[in-house]
Amino acid sequence: MALPSVLPLLPALALPLVVGPLAAAGVLPLMVLYGMSGVTASVPGWLALRSCTARGLIRDDAVHLMGLLISFGLVAMAVADFSHASVAFCEAPYLATYSAEVVHGTGVILWLIGVLAYCRSVASVLPPARSVFLSLTVVALFVSLSASTLLALVLSHLPLLHQVGHGFYTVTAALLTVWVMGVVLLFRNGLIGRPLLLVFPGMLALLASALLSWPGSQYTDVLSVSTGMLSYILVGAGVLLLQGLVSDAHKSFG
């Protein structure tokens, strides 16, 4: 059984690398950047959702659950980015931004639950994985909480709600990154490790996006959104590849 080709991905990966600098240079309004980010989240999100639900919505299957929750998360993030894009038209932009951030955070939580459920399923079958995941979790929590605290102290002029929100975003992104890294290391010699090899840099991009969202300047916001777009494309592509494997397996023998 062979993996589907990832060549169609390449043009999509170029998108954030092109629009990011344009937005940073002021050529492209930030509102448009958010809109394009919403599109890059919604396209893989809907495609992955369609693929995951092809053989039923609710199944007692950890791989299916992870794919489903990541798809729903992408859709939630798309909604958040579209909301961000329409902030300029709102009467209370601060509140609108806050609502969009909450929806975005919901998407990240769905990713967290999906990946956590899969890691727990793997750890229930592979005893060495338990200690690996536990160690990685402890390290990620320590490092991300320390980094968040440091950033909050350095950027103490930011509102408290802003600091808490971004701290949460940073910690969850760090956890997602290390958990996916753990799974990729476990299955590095197997076919199933390859789709996950796309998801890992996607989570790294999410972590970068979380860290870049702290300062709040236009330049860092543009970078944060661009890396966020990269994260959506890579994670979405990884889930689609994994679902492609599963669909091929189903077609072979039913």
């Binding site: 059984m1 053989r55 199944r59 299957d61 950890a62 791989v63 299916h64 399923s121 793997v122 229930s124 079958v125 592979l126 299955f187 199933i192 494997l245 599963v246 669909s247 397996a249 189903h250 072979s252 023998f253």
Partner: peptide, 18 residues
């Protein structure tokens, strides 16, 4: 069953049938 917890039921079935 253990394999299905790692790769999902569809892939586990594919392994058996192949």
């Amino acid at each position: 069953l253990r394999l299905a917890r790692v790769v999902g039921y569809e892939l586990a079935r594919w392994v058996f049938f192949t």
